[in-house]
Design a protein around this nucleic acid. Structure first.
Lengths: 171, 171
DNA sequence: CCCAGAACTGCGAAATCCGCAAGACGCGTA
DNA sequence: TACGCGTCTTGCGGATTTCGCAGTTCTGGG
């Protein structure tokens, strides 16, 4: 027996792959690690290990794997509007037939930061970040509306970002 | 004269507060630093310094200030749907009168991750992350629609997140 | 029961982070 | 123009963290 911190954890089921979904390999320990990194993406591995009951090396391994698998990413986020330039907008899109080709096309555009399929009066929501009004107009009217399966679009130009957090795990 | 890397920078105007906006203190060098951290939030300061032509300590200071000022945050981001639990939705809201009180109220809700004021048929867009359908229903129907100034809402339940990046600086 | 694979732990060595004090620079003022 | 002030930079050590590498434990399958 080593440090003693470990003992408590070995009691619970190691995996606990979440019951309610079809997502891959994210047990409760990794969840706890993610929560730590949601609070501070640069928190040292040792501190995280202490918080979740794991050794520094183990945390490092798991974080690396989560990164490789694309389950999470550690990045700097800003409000582009605050940083200075660029126009932003959310675009609601209704599609004729299969959503995937449209979603793929949107994903391929560098101006599109965020693409999500939804249930409701829009089939897809896409967030767009542009240089200026001309650029925004070009993307929406010339490139998105040009996609064959796109039936209609509606735009919401951003005026001010009021909140932006990533703390779903901690509350 | 010291390292020589500095010389090139001293040629350009130090501040270069962006012309087209009213945002505070983010010069081109800090912009470059943010770009680095958008690629990898854990990149060492020395590496960043080499990339933007600054000393390690200088980068450290600027990063700290950007963090303190709330201009950027370094965090782990995930797709909650992928991680397992929780229901997500975007809610479009139309408001009667001043938007600010409503925006404030939304910001105060822990289930609300993202609030933005927009121009278009919605006044505010809010992204919501919930435990399950009951929780989602509660937040939308009982808490958001209960706000006095809220005229109407429309919900878009997330089915699948297709893209999520933070690379507006680099393209 | 034994074996293979995966995960975790415990180190040193190397790299990084952090605080500090001194020097350089930009800018407003007398 | 000269002076003074605040900000930005730089260049160190020392403390901390990261990294790579075995050895050990745990799990599941044959």
């Amino acid at each position: 027996m080593h440090s003693g911190v470990v003992a408590s954890r070995s009691a619970e089921p190691r995996d606990s792959r979440e019951s309610r979904n079809g997502s891959p390999q994210v047990d409760t320990v990794s969840l706890a690690i993610i929560e730590q990194l949601q609070q501070d993406g640069r928190r040292p591995y040792a501190a995280i290990g202490k918080a979740v009951g794991l050794s520094e090396a183990a945390v490092r391994q798991r974080v690396q794997k989560l990164l490789d698998q694309g389950v999470m990413q550690i990045v700097a986020v800003t409000d582009p509007l605050t940083v200075g330039f660029r126009r932003q907008a959310m675009v609601g899109i209704t599609v004729e037939g299969d959503l995937d080709p449209v979603a793929e096309a949107l994903t391929a555009m560098s101006e599109v930061e965020y693409v999500v399929m939804t249930a409701g009066s829009f089939d897809i929501l896409a967030e767009i970040v542009c240089e200026d009004d001309d650029h925004l107009l070009d993307v929406i009217n010339k490139r998105i509306r040009a996609l064959p399966a796109v039936r209609s679009t509606e735009s919401f130009v951003y005026l001010k970002l009021k909140k932006q957090t990533y703390m779903w795990g901690t509350r």
